[in-house]
Write a protein that binds this DNA or RNA. Sequence first.
DNA 1: GACTCAATGAGAACGATTGTCAAAACGGCT
DNA 2: AGCCGTTTTGACAATCGTTCTCATTGAGTC
Lengths: 132, 132
Amino acid sequence: MQRTTRQRTAVAELLEHSAEFRSAQEVHRMLADRGESVGLATVYRTLQALAEVGEVDALRGPDGEVRYRRCDEQAHHHHLVCRRCGTAVELDAAAVEAWSGTIAAAHGFTAVEHTIELFGLCATCSAADARA
Amino acid sequence: MQRTTRQRTAVAELLEHSAEFRSAQEVHRMLADRGESVGLATVYRTLQALAEVGEVDALRGPDGEVRYRRCDEQAHHHHLVCRRCGTAVELDAAAVEAWSGTIAAAHGFTAVEHTIELFGLCATCSAADARA
DNA sequence: GACTCAATGAGAACGATTGTCAAAACGGCT
DNA sequence: AGCCGTTTTGACAATCGTTCTCATTGAGTC
Ligand SMILES: [Zn+2]
Ligand SMILES: [Zn+2]
Ligand SMILES: [Zn+2]
Ligand SMILES: [Zn+2]
């Protein structure tokens, strides 16, 4: 049976209060800074578990690192993510979904999945950039 | 100045005759098997260079590996890729392009880029799977 | 052929992620 | 509270893709 441990609680807690996408390494470091140190391997395991259950969303950034975040929307959706600070906007892309399904079928592909994410600089980070 | 070497020719040549997305590691192995051995570092450098110039398209598969392939379409486009054999279909997604641009602007994001790729099993691989 | 400088490649270094396994900690039970 | 079987943890090693280093090689030029 699934047990409730200090570590799992700490990780879930952190994501709960974070609006940005965070990598396992970041979570690990942030918890350490906060004095709630959790083993790196455990952070990875916990995040993956949460993602599998659908508790959190996972996506691979342009740099190849996988990032996680707890989304409001439970259903399938995509994101517009700030590549600087990780802030994300949840997108409902019904039109795009339909498009991908149709295209795939038209080419005889099965078991189709898709990766649709938008990366940019959020308003805040854009402003900061302009000032610099 | 850019020099023409046996290695660069070999890599370009291989991509030229391959319809599938190939990773650097795969290219390196394939060349070795074919007797045209090229250093791994060189393969990486060459593929990246080709990608930068737009000679080939690069995309990161679900497993995190970057794959390259020479596409017919020179303009910006996306793909429907077989996650088994790497075969790819080039997609013209004007509608999706417009969508991503509009969405991004609506949220105040700048310098927006997008990742839009579809992965599945091509007709051939689907059939092979069913038989097994 | 001689010279110069880009290119190569073997191997080390890297950074993210996964595997290992003995020790620590839950949770149910008494 | 104390026991116990099972789950979890975490320090550390191992993987894996990719990048870096730097001595050696070779393309292009005269
Ligand atoms: Zn930002
Ligand atoms: Zn979708
Ligand atoms: Zn296939
Ligand atoms: Zn596009």
